[in-house]
């Protein structure tokens, strides 16, 4: 069955490859292609991007397009109806332009959402990687901490943290500003990410290439940063994109109950909370920020699903 006389057999293998030097399409390039080919999901991604750009350009828009300041009161023009030239989306009880406030609110909501997800990824990702990779007592200790974080209802923990406004070293976590609020929400929401990452690490670390790399003399640090992280990154990206929507809702809820961003700074949550009194009087004041939250979260979730489909390794195998 094995013919020892078969001599020079390497040549045809090496030569038969045409276009050998072309730049390969890696995993990320292929995932991007799948992401791009899902029209609805990709459109949602673009919508989120658009909201992001609008939020970033808020000062410019308020100066050039709406000609309103988000916090300056104009008591001569309270409860303006939407559709007018000066107040395209109406004004609130203090005569502030709703459109300008919505754009500034997007700044807060999106900043908090992205910052929270990044922080949660850093905390949850590190904890999950350390627990999964090293195992043993470290795994036990870290995962019991995760269990504890996950076992307390998150809204209760959030209320507690925002109400106490704890100090971490010299930094006081005053939930009134978006950065502190992001830290507080991240402290509550990294648990599920840690679990996901740990589960993925457990399966990746048993694969032969990890053993092969260790047999070459690679350090733990090298194995984790060069091999483990790139292989669990897809799970982290998917989990993060699905979590953004939930965090926007959480942030809005905290604002709504008065524990988040402090007025007069506009956020979608406190705009809702502010306008609930005028529910029967000026419905649009409730509907508009609600709609902003609804559309953003929906787009985030659809986009998150698309990202998951694009990066899911099982889908890859089936192709």
């Amino acid at each position: 069955m094995l013919d020892p006389t078969a001599g020079a057999i390497e040549a045809p293998v090496a030569q038969s490859i045409g276009r050998a030097g072309r730049r390969a399409r890696g995993y990320w390039a292929e995932s991007w292609e799948r992401l791009y080919s899902d029209r609805i999901g990709f459109a949602c991604g673009l919508l989120i991007l658009l909201f992001g750009v609008l939020a970033l350009a808020a000062p410019l828009l308020s100066a050039v397009v709406t000609h309103h300041d988000p916090v300056r009161q104009n008591l001569a023009n309270t409860f303006a109806l939407p559709g007018q030239f000066t107040f395209p989306l109406g004004s609130d009880e203090l005569g502030r332009d709703t459109l300008t406030r919505l754009i500034y609110g997007a700044r807060v909501s999106l900043l908090v959402a992205y910052l929270t997800v990044i922080l949660a990824l850093i905390i949850g990702g590190s904890v999950g990687m350390l627990a999964g990779y090293f195992g043993g007592w470290l795994d036990t200790v870290l995962m019991r901490v995760v269990d504890m974080v996950l076992s307390i209802p998150s809204i209760y923990l959030l209320i507690l943290l925002t109400a106490l406004a704890p100090r971490i070293g010299p930094v006081s976590l005053n939930p009134g500003n978006p950065y502190s609020l992001a830290v507080i929400i991240a402290l509550v929401s990294w648990g599920s990410l840690a679990r996901l990452v740990r589960a993925d690490v457990l399966s990746v670390k048993e694969r032969d290439f990890m053993l092969a790399t260790r047999s070459l003399g690679a350090s733990n640090w090298r194995l984790m940063s060069r091999h483990l992280l790139p292989n669990v990154l897809a799970v982290m990206v998917v989990a993060a994109s699905l979590q953004v929507g939930a965090i926007i809702v959480t942030e809005a809820a905290l604002d709504f109950i008065g524990l988040g961003i402090t007025p007069p700074t506009a956020s979608w949550g406190n705009m809702l909370s502010n306008s609930q009194v005028y529910f029967y009087h000026s419905l649009w004041l409730v509907i508009l920020p609600g709609l902003a939250i609804f559309v953003t979260v929906l787009a985030m979730n659809v986009f998150g699903n698309t990202v998951r489909d694009a990066f899911d390794p099982r889908l890859r195998e089936m192709r």
Partner: peptide
């Protein structure tokens, strides 16, 4: 001392060239 592995699919990191 080096090692050559059985499964040529599993023993190469899919994220590296």
């Amino acid at each position: 001392i080096a090692m050559i592995f059985q499964d040529p699919y599993a023993s190469l990191d899919p994220r590296q060239t």
